[in-house]
């Protein structure tokens, strides 16, 4: 169970003057294991948030996976979520489009708003929400259908195209924006699963943007890809930022540094630090963040 740290370590109680572990060279075992409550340091809010999360807690049965996280995702920004394995990054972004609803025994508490509307309110339809908040998964998961059908599927089920020509337009422009059109224009009828791993992941991105969401969640989109495919996806993320807000979970700190404007560091289900990406990587406030970005833990 989580317990407040003794005040002498400066997390709870005297946060007003010393929110981080100033002047200490070592972390206690409780801190490393996350068995204490951290006060998030840095700028959790955004001047123009599209998603704002306040005091979010997630439970899987009796296990608490996310503990009191408050964070904004800004409009047209890329925010990367980093942290060691099992720290709750993926769980957190799955709250943002209610994918955790599909997991038996998962319970989400707290106030999560998309453009000011609470997404966990009773009247909100998760199907509509997921059309507004798209998701790209860790492993490329194209449908075992043709390339064309993969991209067209979202538009079809949401009734976005009124004619075949409109559907073609949506499919081709989405593939174009995903940087895949030139590679697959002669292979529209081949199964999506026949593409290479990197192409499959861009196909999944094209499938997501075909629905024209406001936010795209990416859960380690490059972890199954080689460096060249990764570079392509990273370039793509930079372009997509013009039109979408993106939250990306990544294990690669270099990737976070390359693609994101803000970075949030998670540790054992808690949000430890948020800030501008270069600040977090070059001048972190919290000792745990520093240890992680310098490779001492993780």
């Amino acid at each position: 169970m989580l317990k407040p740290m003794d005040t002498q370590y400066g997390f709870i109680g005297n946060r007003s003057h010393d929110p981080y572990v100033a002047g200490r060279d070592t972390l206690s075992k409780e801190e490393q294991d996350g068995e204490c409550i951290f006060e998030t340091v840095g700028e959790v809010t955004s001047p123009d948030p599209i998603i704002s999360v306040r005091n979010c807690n997630v439970f899987y049965g009796d296990n608490q996976a996310i503990n009191n996280v408050t964070l904004d995702v800004g409009r047209n920004e890329v925010i990367s979520l980093i942290g060691p394995s099992g720290c709750g990054k993926s769980t957190f972004i799955r709250c943002l489009n209610r994918m955790n609803d599909t997991i038996e025994g998962a319970r989400v508490e707290g106030d999560i708003r998309l453009d000011g509307e609470p997404i966990y309110a009773k009247e909100v339809d998760p199907v509509l929400l997921r059309a507004r908040v798209g998701m790209v998964f860790q492993k490329p998961n194209p449908f075992p259908k043709s390339v064309y059908e993969n991209v067209a599927y979202g538009a079809r089920i949401h009734g976005l195209a009124r004619s075949r020509a409109e559907l073609d337009e949506i499919v081709f422009s989405s593939l174009e924006r995903a940087g895949l059109y030139a590679e697959v224009k002669s292979r529209m009828d081949e199964p999506g699963t026949s593409l290479s791993g990197g192409q499959q992941q861009r196909l999944c991105i094209a499938r997501t943007i075909a629905v024209n969401p406001e936010v795209i969640l990416m859960d380690e989109p490059c972890s199954a890809l080689d460096p060249i495919a990764t570079a392509k996806i990273e370039d793509l993320i930079e372009e997509l930022r013009q039109n979408f807000s993106i939250a990306i979970v990544t294990h690669s700190m270099q990737q976070a540094a390359r693609v994101s404007q803000r970075t949030a560091y998670f540790h054992m289900g808690q949000l430890v630090e948020v800030g501008a990406t270069d600040t977090v990587f070059t001048n972190p406030i919290h000792r745990l963040t520093e240890d992680y970005v310098t490779g001492r833990i993780g």
Binding site: T102, G134, G154
Partner: peptide
């Protein structure tokens, strides 16, 4: 059927 297929469908807003 791998769960990733279900997630992919749900992730772009297909109903269950």
């Amino acid at each position: 059927v791998p769960p990733s297929i279900r997630e992919a469908a749900l992730g772009i807003g297909a109903s269950p």
